[in-house]
Nucleic acid binder design. Structure first.
Lengths: 267, 267
DNA sequence: CGTTCGATTGAGGAAGATCAATTAATGTGG
DNA sequence: CCACATTAATTGATCTTCCTCAATCGAACG
C-alpha cells in the first residue's frame, strides 16, 4: 500500500522527501516518542499514512509563487504538505505584510481559517511541491471513526501554537545576529528531524524575505550571514549565496549564546 | 477586584451574557456575525454553557501569581478561563523569558501541551479568577457525542493560532509607540467583545511585564504611555498610573497609523 | 514614617535602519 | 553565446530608534 504516498519528485532535489512511508501510525508514534514541537520523520510518515488511508486526499501539485489559499477566502479545506516548502504571510488592514511561519513536509496548513470561517493569511509555495487537500468536514467525519486521526490533527495544531510562541520568544529576546543563527539552526533541525541531511540548506528565500520573517532588514540579514561565514559557523557554496553549508549545527547554538553573553540576563 | 471581568461563578450572572445554554456555537456565530479572531460575549457564553452542560467541569479559584500549569509538567488538562486574567510565559533553555500571550474570559489554556504530552510554558494568574478544569480525555469523549463541542475546541485553537500571528505581525512591523497603542486598542477591543466597558482599562501588569510582552524595555513603555497621554489619546486616573482611560478607541488606531505615516510602506 | 517597589524622565550610547554605491547572479533577446 | 537588463547581495556611511544607566518621584505597606 501507500505507493502513491511517496512524495512527488521535485526538480530541485532540496529534500523534504524520500522517506519510506509504510508503518503503523499510532503504534509508531508511541515507539518513537515524538516530543513537543518535534515531529520526527517516522511520526510524520505515520500521520501521512494514516491520513492517506482514512481520507485518500486529493493531491495537488504546486509551483513556486502559487497560493493555495488567501486571506479572506472562505474556509473549507485543510492542507498537509507532502513535499516542497511554504511561507505563511499575514497582512494587516493597513497593508503591513509579515511572513509569520514557514511550513515543511508533514506540516498542516489552514488551521487559521477554522475560527472565522475564512482564512486569515496567505499560504504561498516557495518551491515545487505537493499538498494534500482535506475537506475539513470530511476530516471531522473521519476523525469520528478514528481517534488516532483526531489526535494527529490536535497535535498538529498544538505544535503550531508552540512554534508560533517560540518565534515570538526569539523575536523579542535575541539580537539580530543570534536570530539569524537561530533561524538556520531551526531549519537544520527541521531537516534532521525529517531524516534529511542537515548540513546543507538551500534557502529558497531572498534576504528580504528572511529579513521580513525575522523582523529585520535585508542588509542586517546579509551582515549577520557574513559574520557567521567569517566565524566559520557557516560556509557559502562556491557559487551563489543561496546554499548554506553548516559544518556543525552545535556551533550555531554556541554562536547564539555568544551573542547573548556580553549583556547577560537581558530583560 | 474583578472590575473588568465577569463575576466568578456563573457565566449568566452578568446581564450582558444571558445566552441560552444549549445553542450551538456555530449557529450563534452566524447570527452575531463574529469574525476571525473575534469571540463575542454571546459566543463565549454559549461555549461556556455548552462545556458546562457536557462536562460539568471542576471549578478552580486562582489568585494572582498562582500558576495553573508549568513548562515540563505532564499534560492532562485543558482549562477555560471563566474570570480573571492570565499571562502565558515561555522560557528558552538558556533562561530567556517571554510573555507570549494574555488570556481573558472565554479563552482556553493548555493547548501547547497536547503535542508533546507536556506543557511548554507557564500559565500565571494575574488576578483573582476562576478556571474550569477539563480532563483532555474526558473532553475528547464528550466531543464524540457532541459535534458542537469539538467545533468549539477547534475554534479556540484556531483563534489562538491567529492571535499569535497577529502578535508577531505587530512585533515586527510596528515601532514601539505604535505597539503600545495597539496593545491598548486590542485590550479595549477584547473587553468590548465581552460586553464590558472598554473605555477603562485596569492594567494589572507592571511596565516591565508589558514591556516584556511587547518586546521593549519598561522605560520605552513608560515613555510611550506618556506620549499617548500628552496627545490626549489616553488619560491616567487621578490616582495611580495603572488605570488607563480611553476616551475614544478609534484615536488609538489613528495614533498607530500616525506612527507609521512618516516612513510609509515599510518593509 | 521610613522602606520598598514601581513609574517617570533625562542623558548618553549601541544596535539596527536607512541611504547609497558596488558587485554578483539571473534572465533575455539578438 | 554574448551583451544587456534586471534582480539579488554585499558593504560602507550615516542617522534614528530604542536600550542602558542613573536620578527622582510617587504610591503602597508594614
Amino acid at each position: 500500500m501507500l505507493s502513491q504516498d511517496a512524495p512527488v519528485a521535485t526538480p530541485h532535489a532540496s529534500g523534504l522527501m524520500g522517506v519510506p512511508s509504510q508503518s503503523e501510525p499510532a503504534a509508531l508514534r508511541a515507539v518513537t516518542g515524538a516530543s513537543e514541537n518535534c515531529a520526527t520523520s517516522a511520526s510524520i510518515a505515520a500521520t501521512l499514512a494514516l491520513v492517506n488511508e482514512r481520507l485518500a486526499p486529493q493531491r495537488r501539485l504546486v509551483h513556486a509563487g502559487e497560493e493555495i489559499y488567501q486571506a479572506g477566502e472562505r474556509f473549507g479545506n485543510l492542507y498537509i504538505l507532502n513535499s516542497g516548502f511554504f511561507k505563511i504571510v499575514s497582512t494587516s488592514p493597513d497593508g503591513r505584510e509579515q511572513v509569520v511561519s514557514l511550513k515543511f513536509r508533514g506540516d498542516w496548513l489552514g488551521f487559521d481559517g477554522i475560527a472565522g470561517a475564512a482564512y486569515s493569511c496567505n499560504a504561498v509555495a516557495m518551491d515545487t511541491g505537493e499538498v494534500w487537500v482535506l475537506r475539513y468536514e470530511a476530516l471531522l467525519a473521519a476523525c469520528a471513526a478514528d481517534r488516532g486521526l483526531l489526535t494527529a490533527v490536535h497535535e498538529a495544531m498544538s505544535r503550531e501554537i508552540g512554534r508560533d510562541r517560540d518565534s515570538l520568544l526569539s523575536m523579542c529576546t535575541l539580537p539580530a545576529d543570534a536570530r539569524v543563527a537561530e533561524f538556520l539552526r531551526l531549519w537544520a533541525e527541521s531537516l534532521a528531524r525529517r531524516g534529511l541531511r542537515s548540513d546543507q540548506i538551500t534557502l529558497r528565500m531572498t534576504r528580504a524575505e528572511i529579513g521580513n520573517y525575522l523582523g529585520m532588514t535585508l542588509e542586517t540579514v546579509s551582515r549577520a550571514l557574513s559574520r557567521l561565514a567569517r566565524d566559520k559557523v557557516i560556509c557559502f557554496a562556491t557559487k551563489g549565496r543561496r546554499d548554506v553549508h553548516i559544518p556543525d549545527v552545535a556551533a550555531l547554538t554556541v554562536f547564539v549564546q555568544h551573542c547573548l553573553a556580553p549583556q547577560r540576563t537581558l530583560q
